[in-house]
């Protein structure tokens, strides 16, 4: 038996399913040639965004990555606006100017997904500093991959967050690959949380495919930050079940390796526990998947029926006050 309550368990599950459905639909649309550009899927890593976000408030901030759909959805993002952005439509989150890699939703504290790996670290310091100067009890979550941990920005941000005790939770999604390069070839430590001692902050390693483990670890780190006790570095071990981007030839790993990790994927793993604990029945499970399938289909319909931006829109939004 697990020690979390049923409503929390179902909340975690629903968030994971919502992300999985959105990403699965997105993958299909991309393969059908309906989405321009590049899309990076979060499939297999849903437990991290779901587990972390369960303890966040609407006014807390998150900073995300190129693999960011899951982070925004878990924070309460709107599927319709995100899907429309994936299509490049004017009704999208960024009116088609950002695309899949640059979703932001300032109304829910989502300060933007970053196309530059590691670009989010310094910005998270600023959000944390702002909270401290404004004397609120908000917190900041900065999601990042194992590859980003090797940027200089990681070092500068962790050091600065530590000396100023900023309310930031650095959440590493260690999915074993930095694009096509295996982690063991690029990371000096076994897992990123080992680096926490260098910054005098707590370092927590947890199973990133176990949503309950992520939830508990993140809850403690978030509460600590909210109390003004400073940042935490979490490293969640997971696996990217899809390619770096849709269409990735994936020559850097074997089909067998991927198949092995499909057996450990977080949603099926959680369902087993949920059934054992009586949190979920087969009928409830079916209803939840259908609910999000329907939401995703409506998002696709909304996106397809929405117009592309007027080309002149490309010349707007550079400045608040263009001084013309």
């Amino acid at each position: 038996m697990s020690d979390i309550d049923k409503s929390t368990a179902i909340k975690l599950y629903r968030t994971m399913v919502r992300i999985r459905v959105f990403e699965t639909v997105t993958e299909k649309l991309f393969l059908e040639g309906k989405l321009p550009g590049f899309v990076h899927l979060y499939i297999g890593e849903e437990a991290i965004a779901a587990g972390v976000s369960a303890s966040l408030r609407r006014d807390d901030y998150i900073l995300s990555t190129h693999r960011g759909h899951g982070h925004t959805l878990a924070k309460g993002g709107d599927m319709k606006k995100m899907m429309a952005e994936n299509y490049g439509k004017v009704t999208g989150y960024c009116k088609g100017k950002g695309g899949s890699m640059h979703i932001a939703d300032f109304s829910i504290g989502m300060l933007g997904a970053n196309g530059v790996v590691g670009g989010q670290f310094p910005i998270s310091v600023g959000a944390g500093l702002s909270i401290k100067m404004r004397k609120t009890d908000q917190v900041v979550v900065a999601y990042f991959g194992d590859g980003a941990a090797n940027r200089g920005t990681f070092h500068e941000a962790l050091n600065m967050a530590s000396i100023w005790k900023l309310p930031i939770i650095f959440v590493n999604e260690d999915n074993q690959y930095a694009s096509t390069t295996r982690k063991v070839r690029t990371l000096s430590v076994e897992h990123v949380a080992q680096r926490a001692c260098a910054y005098n902050v707590p370092g927590i390693r947890c199973d990133g495919n176990d949503v309950i483990a992520v939830y508990k670890a993140a809850k403690e780190a978030i509460e600590r930050a909210r109390r003004g006790e400073g940042p935490t570095l979490m490293s969640c071990q997971t696996y990217r079940l899809k390619g770096h981007f849709i269409g990735d030839p994936e020559k850097y790993r074997t089909h067998e390796e991927v198949e092995e990790f499909w057996k450990k994927e977080p949603i099926g793993r959680f369902e087993k526990i949920a059934f054992e604990n009586g949190w979920l029945t087969e009928d409830e499970k079916k209803a939840i998947w259908e609910e999000y399938q329907k939401e995703a289909e409506e998002a696709v319909k909304f996106a397809e029926e929405s117009p592309y931006p007027d080309p002149e829109e490309a010349l707007k939004d550079v400045f608040v006050n263009p001084l013309e």
């Binding site: 300032f106 300060l111 670290f121 910005i123 959000a127 200089g152 920005t153 600065m160």
Partner: peptide, 13 residues
């Protein structure tokens, strides 16, 4: 990088 980033994050919030 963290100094300018801190400015960016603070300006956003």
């Amino acid at each position: 990088t963290a100094i300018v980033g801190a400015g960016v994050g603070a300006a956003l919030t």
